[in-house]
Design a protein around this nucleic acid. Structure first.
Lengths: 193, 193
DNA sequence: TCACATTTGGAACGAACATTCCAAAATAAA
DNA sequence: TTTATTTTGGAATGTTCGTTCCAAATGTGA
């Protein structure tokens, strides 16, 4: 019926994510995206409507990718407490990757657009809910198994871990020392032990 | 000898900080700054050289302001442990100020420019060092008084608290529920008790 | 092979961008 | 009052911005 798309949407989103991640939303120009994706301007607008919508698509793409990273941590763990620890530790090599460390995509998004763009905020809230749910489920299961203490509710610990995780990602922007980061994780986990 | 400046530099920096804070560095245009400060373009360039340098000046201005906020917490406290708690709690009313909550200026700066602009990164590193020092001193004193446990070194706890504080500020961007935030503080403090 | 629907390339759009320039205004010392 | 020095106002700089437009290219179903 019609001409086919010549590019792979996943690859384009991956390339776009890289640019947005490195330069931020406002710091990224359409020209940057044209060069990074190899697509023509028209094709970008034809497929993604606008700079903002493309950004939103990269967020959803990123969510899938980082979600599988979380799954990897969960599978590797022998118990819920270890799972929480692994969720933090899985980012150690990424953070320590000196020079190439671009910080956390979600943190950048949150500080830059979290309070301004409605659709972005919706995504952030959904992403937040997901993260807290993961932590809550782990804590709940850990408390059932006696692996995690019951001094506070699973809800309370879930919010705490969510907050600590964000701090961990922020700290990793300028501190790449694995020993220091491991120490932070150890202290963080101590509360729920 | 020459014509006098008609404006107050502190007031200009305050106004500029407001804009940068609300819109981010790249999201702020020189036109925004002209309108917010009431200064003429020429005057801005005459006094601050460039958009980036003006931004750097607002960071230093902010550091002074937030420093006095920290001092307020320290003075109010009866002991080091309480001081740590107050440092967190002093931001509760600011975060809960629904609608007007613009997040943390330093977090925004870190995610947007922390890895790109050398001079900004220098400031961030200095600011980071200051914060960690404050926490370290408090922990050290608390450990001496027996108020804070000695299971880990003051250094280890300082980094932990620094990281947790950043997470707290990030969480406060989208979560304004005081009860939830207080719960996070309580769990955070529990480690060093 | 034709007709149709979509993608693609590349130029073009006006608006907004950070910065510069210069003459007019202002003031303090001479 | 003159001279020297700085600030101010506002226009103008050239560049880059996000987005649009349209003709050419393409591939599928008829």
């Amino acid at each position: 019926m019609a001409r086919l798309q010549e590019y792979n949407k996943e690859e384009v989103l991956k390339a776009a994510t890289e640019v947005y991640w490195a330069k931020g939303y406002h710091g990224t120009s359409m020209q940057d995206l044209v060069e990074a994706t190899g697509l023509n301007r028209s094709s970008i607008y034809n497929s993604f409507d606008s700079k903002l919508n493309l950004y939103l698509q990269t967020l959803k793409f990123y969510q899938k990718e980082s979600g599988s990273l979380f799954q990897k941590a969960l599978l590797k763990a022998n118990n819920p407490l270890e799972a929480v620890q692994f969720i933090f530790e899985i980012f150690l090599p990424i953070i320590a990757n000196e020079g190439l460390n671009k910080g956390c995509y979600v943190m950048s998004c949150k500080t830059e657009l979290g309070k301004q763009e409605g659709k972005i905020q919706d995504w952030l809230l959904n992403n937040q809910e997901n993260s807290i749910n993961i932590f809550r489920d782990l804590v709940l299961e850990g408390q059932k198994l006696g692996n995690i203490n019951t001094k506070q509710s699973a809800d309370s610990y879930a919010y705490y871990l969510f907050s600590a995780f964000q701090g961990f990602r922020m700290t990793g922007i300028l501190i790449n020392d694995k020993l220091v980061l491991k120490e932070i994780i150890k202290n963080t986990i101590e509360v729920i032990k």
